[in-house]
Simulated assay, not measured.
Amino acid sequence: MKRLFRLALCGLLLAGFGCARHKIIPDDELAMIFHDAFLTNAYLGTQNVRTDSLRLYEPIFARYGYTTEDVYYTIGNFSKRKSARLGDVVEQAIDRLESEGKVYDRAVAVLDTIDNVARRTFTRTVLSDTLIRVSSLRDTSKLHFTLDVEPGEYRLSLKYRIDSLDRNDRGLKAAMWLEKRDSTRANNYTVTLRRNREERFTRNFTTDTTHGRLCLRLLTFGEKPQRPSLTVRDLKVEFTPPTDVAVDRLYEKQLDIRIFADEFFRAALPPKDSL
């Protein structure tokens, strides 16, 4: 495995790079990129997938906030960094792969890692808000949301605080449920909201073709609602498609991966005319 890494990476060390400014990827993140890309390639190899595109790398790089050009530039820049060795980064990725191999059967480890890469790649935020203040009964509508859903997983996360200005003695709750296409409710969930300190809240919902909407009522009252005083921060709902769907999309979107495939290195080489 170490020999494969070294043979693959030496091509980029010999490649020419332009003068455009690109991001330098920190060593730890570069090691994780190597790790994810190598395992993705290994998995495709077990499936005998033959492809002719390099786009499979792009979402892996993008997941860490980088482009293919950033990877080229970072690897090429190692020759200018006196205190850094590309070999150390490679060893870090290898150590992680080998430690995983000790815990799981290699084939299972590869499958699991590729599934996770695919799921991370296609996870998207469908609702977000950094700050919502509710200081009147009219404001409660700010915390009522209805989202159309598709099969997969939805994760709700937020932080809230009910402060001393709130006039409700008790009975403040959050309610949420899935609405089926026949208008019936499923997965009803309520939680009593705590007072006078910041609290974190998360909830996961698994949806299928029978579900139509996710309903969130993040502030509800008892019998006699009084003036509320509530702050919600970092509200987010993220959607992740089913694993098999995510992997299929990964195949469709990314068509060639070997860490690193020959085409990846050829793309980094300067044109023959410039040699």
Rank of each mutant, 00 (worst) to 15 (best):
residue 57 Y to F: 15
residue 150 E to F: 02
residue 230 L to H: 05
residue 190 T to N: 10
residue 203 R to K: 15
residue 191 V to C: 03
residue 261 A to I: 02
residue 50 R to W: 11
residue 193 L to G: 01
residue 149 V to L: 03
residue 95 D to M: 12
residue 12 L to T: 08
residue 51 T to H: 07
residue 110 V to I: 09
residue 113 T to P: 03
residue 165 L to Y: 12
residue 46 T to E: 12
residue 53 S to P: 01
residue 263 E to N: 13
residue 187 N to G: 03
residue 182 D to P: 01
residue 120 R to C: 08
residue 133 R to K: 15
residue 174 A to K: 07
residue 246 A to N: 05
residue 60 I to Q: 04
residue 127 L to S: 01
residue 107 A to F: 13
residue 3 R to M: 00
residue 39 L to I: 13
residue 67 T to N: 10
residue 109 A to F: 04
residue 119 R to Y: 08
residue 143 L to Y: 04
residue 99 S to I: 03
residue 150 E to R: 10
residue 157 S to N: 12
residue 73 Y to I: 06
residue 272 K to Y: 12
residue 265 F to M: 15
residue 172 L to K: 10
residue 148 D to K: 15
residue 217 R to E: 14
residue 154 Y to V: 00
residue 181 R to T: 13
residue 207 T to G: 01
residue 94 I to P: 07
residue 184 T to D: 11
residue 149 V to M: 08
residue 115 D to M: 02
residue 47 Q to H: 12
residue 31 A to P: 01
residue 205 F to Y: 14
residue 120 R to F: 11
residue 25 I to N: 02
residue 197 R to C: 08
residue 46 T to G: 06
residue 9 L to I: 09
residue 123 T to Y: 06
residue 81 R to T: 08
residue 91 E to D: 14
residue 215 C to W: 05
residue 148 D to A: 13
residue 113 T to R: 06
residue 178 L to P: 01
residue 109 A to K: 00
residue 30 L to C: 09
residue 240 T to G: 08
residue 156 L to D: 04
residue 159 K to N: 11
residue 230 L to M: 11
residue 144 H to R: 15
residue 123 T to E: 10
